[in-house]
Amino acid sequence: MHSTGYTLRFIIILTAVVALLLTGLREVTKTQAELNETIFNKKEILKAIATRLGDDVDVSAMSDEEVENNFSRIEQLAVNIKGESIDAAKIMESGYKGGKAIDIDMAKEKKKNEEDRIFPLFVYGKGKDKIYILNVRGNGLWDEIWGNVAVESDFSTIVGVSFDHKGETPGLGAEIKDNPAFPKQFTGKKIRNENSDYVSVLVKKGGADKGNVHEVDGISGATVTADGVTEMLGRCIKYYEKYYEKNIKS
């Protein structure tokens, strides 16, 4: 039998060797992995405005260069809840090295107080055709859900949305992402009423009323996730409200 000293030594050496090898491997793959993640996030944003990129554009099939090409036409801003623009230096101060809106980690921001958060805002196109892409993040049934909402220059008509989730049930809650028909419903809906007051969009259990521009159909068996989407949209789009009043409305 082995002595305690031997056991201890064995464990320490084994752990050290494995840890060293993994750290080395991590260092080698890190740059590419981070690049892949950024591309992935950029694709999610492009998905929200896919209908405006051209006919039959399949964002998920895009090559890295195409993603970068399309994304270079998007202006990246960051705002806070008071409607003030946040510059690159401030973004870096918050711990995002790149200093761009795409670098902002919404999962981290969600843990801060609402007043301290910074929100990325992406702008595509010019003048009347401007599209604003807002970032939303909330809770589904099991874990976080998030997405991008693209609105026209009136800050009301939705151009498109893309959702993602961490751990919703496949076939039920995960349909917000897996079933293209769900995000598609949002296109053309309005987040403001005739008086241009903010009302958001409701994901309605049992189906939306026909012709109601503030409702979309829910998903059978995924009421909690759908309610999560409703809550997320209602709360998170509002974060951009002050910025809209100050900079866009006039």
């Binding site: 494995v18 993994l22 491997l25 991590r26 793959t29 992995a33 892949n36 993640e37």
Partner: peptide
Amino acid sequence: IAGLVTVVEFALKYFNFT
């Protein structure tokens, strides 16, 4: 096992993030 699984994770992040 955990070491090898981490290798798989790195490889996936590197080759196919989706």
